[in-house]
Nucleic acid binder design. Sequence first.
DNA 1: GCCACGCATTAACCTATGACATGGGCTGTG
DNA 2: CACAGCCCATGTCATAGGTTAATGCGTGGC
Lengths: 244, 244
Amino acid sequence: MSPTSSSDVLIRKLLSISDVRQTDIDVLKSIPIQEKDFLANYDLVREGDRPVSSFVVLDGLLGSTKHTGDGKRQITSFFVAGDIPDLHGLHLSVMDCNFSTLTPARMGFIRHDALRAICEQHPRIATAFWRSTLIDAAIYREWVTNVGRREAYTRMAHILCELIFRLRSVGRIQDHVADLPITQAALGDALGLSTVHVNRMLQELRRRGLIATTGSRVHVLDWLGLTHAGDFDTTYLHQRNPAV
Amino acid sequence: MSPTSSSDVLIRKLLSISDVRQTDIDVLKSIPIQEKDFLANYDLVREGDRPVSSFVVLDGLLGSTKHTGDGKRQITSFFVAGDIPDLHGLHLSVMDCNFSTLTPARMGFIRHDALRAICEQHPRIATAFWRSTLIDAAIYREWVTNVGRREAYTRMAHILCELIFRLRSVGRIQDHVADLPITQAALGDALGLSTVHVNRMLQELRRRGLIATTGSRVHVLDWLGLTHAGDFDTTYLHQRNPAV
DNA sequence: GCCACGCATTAACCTATGACATGGGCTGTG
DNA sequence: CACAGCCCATGTCATAGGTTAATGCGTGGC
């Protein structure tokens, strides 16, 4: 269906963060992956679940979310094509967060027993997976900082930088234009802001000529300006082979 | 010096989160650990460093911290006795955060090459370490939620619950009293609040009879009330063997 | 072609929290 | 003892961001 197979998406991701060799790639290609499509706003996994498989994002945008006692939602991280959001489920039996689609999305499911078997026999792949979960953690750290200590405007710019950088590094951006059918409410849940204030901040970014939007397309007019506005430094993303 | 050796602190921690066996314990006991004391407010590791060893907290309180471009500090997580804060350094060569003592503290340093060798030869220990980093990530997720979507009062109560729960699970609490010589400024940096507001919220907690403080000692008067006030649920800490 | 619905936008108003300034109480030190 | 350095406490004022509600707009269903 898609021009690249689901293993290719996964392999491309692991290559971009880790040193996997040809033999590992062959192993990865042999993993059985079951593809499935979802609408936006669907909970793939819920807090308290004990899943028996993980999934790789093949297309679309996913969020790890949590809910407070009084029902407010916080998105704690985004996941784009190639990411394996709930890889931690492999070693943490009970889920402590939900994974919800933020846009229509396609996932590839991989059974935990298959993953465990591969990790046991191919330590380099195990390390690559471990490293993937460590990068997730680094992103969470950055988000704590973003939400805790940056002002709304900076926060908004920062999250856009992260999203765009990550989409670009998996080849999902053409000519500085990203297709991001994400609602302002979802952005608010990621930033700890109200939708109204998200709207205000987006307007400010447009007014200052950093971005333009047409429908769900976000056009970055001034990448350098956006990174400055967002206090954005890519270190925390731990991209190893950005050329891939 | 201390009644327990530095390996014991580490082993106790791994037992509390994972299934390590006697043979693993023997291996862990043989790891060379170099102990060292630090004053409060000392940076053990800085953003950009490429450390060659990790460390286990033997005593005191540590924080993983980040700084925004305009110099504000965010503490993204606490670490108590038994925790290995920068274990991720094993697979992420460049540090994306600092690790600073928040109280006087004692650390035990373990060289990365020693850790790597052990992980290769003892997959169950490797899994335990991986699991430890996954729990750190779960805590980061909770903190994003705490800072992003909870009000100052709830946030304050939540962080106290977490700290006290974690201290208790490593036996550092007697009779509901915790010795926490942490400044209100540091609490503010953890909560994304000003010190003034931290002070207000602590007073509110005292006024409502949930806690009492004498000097650096925090006395929990009403644990259940505090967990309710803090919207606190222990799931995200993934404690496996709480009895240990 | 009309309606319903979800989403973006705007405006008016309100409040939780920040900023700043001050005083007071420890603790270590010369 | 006097002094300096911290840290906690308190009051006042300022504001970033929340809340609510109304409007409009595009899209898909019928």
